[in-house]
Design a protein around this nucleic acid. Structure first.
Lengths: 213, 213
DNA sequence: CTAACGTTTGTCCAACCGGTCAAAAATTTG
DNA sequence: CAAATTTTTGACCGGTTGGACAAACGTTAG
């Protein structure tokens, strides 16, 4: 998972591994709320409880932190889609994919925002990955979904846009969290909002809005 | 619309009005692709074809440009939702709301990204608006939708999350445009993608994924 | 023409920011 | 213990950035 891109794996002491973790955790917090250019090394260092030169001893450049963070993120971020499999009932399979994605938005909002920030700015650092690894994965899963359609298990529609809509609706609860909470207000904007969202999304994706009967 | 917040409306010459427009147009381009902190006054000045001190003659501070931009944005951004009305067939009404929002994502992607950037960073400059004006409007429209549900015109579900899902799915095509294009590839990622999206979203929101029959 | 006013620019500054460096402090090793 | 190695820090540097300012330039009205 880590070091997949670095050509030679550097040996690291126990302290180095721990401190690097600490820095990455702090950087995730800072980057995800301020963006890359909006974040300073000092902010990250302070959040990690160390001095700036000390931080730079573990990561030579600000960009290295961001790059390491991004590489880790992508693996875990696409895991739910990878799990989407041809075994089992298609509607159930899609339902649980949506549920898993929504859980990730709930449990890892910072990761979602970090990713959103990168894409918003034109994905300068991960463009090759989008056109390569991501496209391949999505195309593969789109074909799985197409099979379900041919078999009459789900309605015929565009599988790629279906995947986009699942990404959009679930990540919305992480990326636009402040807006969601502001609109729902103090009473409905509490912890229950993710369960409400889960119920709503299930109904939307399965039955749509047309009245029954 | 403009000057709604400024306490005293300053008199402006014809040149001032024109140059301010020019600056705002340039700033929209720069802010929407680099975020607030990621953008420099020099970049905006160059994009507007003038020197930095000259720009600062029309807008005293960088923040003033952003604030003016944001105030204008919000009015036009919420226009489609305001138009959502109780007259006419509910399903048709929702369908055309979705279509209008998607058209805005297609025609005003920079505005969408500017807004997304602001929300992602925690909406520091527009929080009062979210909790006030926006919440009021959404609550009002949610009640309209609730009426449709009671009348059996559309399926019963959560109106607030329905509105969120329309925002999320449509704005996705502006905010995550590079990802969408990368995944669709050169052939399917062209101009036709918005029509494909429109068809898909209509089907999703009306019928869902359950196979017919 | 000229005085008043609006516009533009070159120059400058203080704060900030990413990153270096040498030396001190702490830790590990023999 | 002492030497070697790793970790931490204060001081510093060059480049950038937001913004101030006064002087120059242009325009308009009397």
């Amino acid at each position: 998972m880590t070091g997949a891109v670095e050509s030679s794996a550097p040996r690291r002491t126990r302290i180095q591994l721990e401190k690097r973790e600490l820095i990455l955790e702090a950087a995730l917090e800072v980057f995800s709320t301020n963006g890359f250019r909006g974040s300073t090394i000092d902010q990250i260092a302070e959040a990690a409880g160390m001095s700036k030169p000390n931080l730079l001893y573990y990561f030579r450049r600000k960009e290295d932190i961001h790059e390491t963070l991004m590489q880790r993120l992508l693996d875990t971020w696409l895991a739910p889609l990878r799990e989407l499999d041809d075994i089992g009932d298609p509607l159930t399979e899609l339902r649980s994919y949506i549920r898993r994605k929504l859980e990730m938005a709930r449990d890892f909002p910072r990761e979602s925002r970090l990713f959103a920030n990168e894409i918003l700015q034109g994905a300068p650092r991960i463009m090759p990955m989008l056109e390569g690894e991501l496209k391949t994965l999505v195309d593969e899963k789109a074909n799985v979904i197409k099979g379900w359609m041919r078999a009459g298990k789900i309605a015929r529609t565009d599988p790629w846009h279906l995947i986009f809509s699942i990404w959009a609706t679930t990540q919305h609860y992480a990326d636009f969290d402040v807006q969601v909470r502001a609109v729902l207000g103090p009473d409905r904007g509490g912890d229950g909002r993710f369960e409400d969202a889960a119920r709503f999304l299930e109904q939307l994706f399965i039955d749509g809005l047309k009245p029954k009967g």
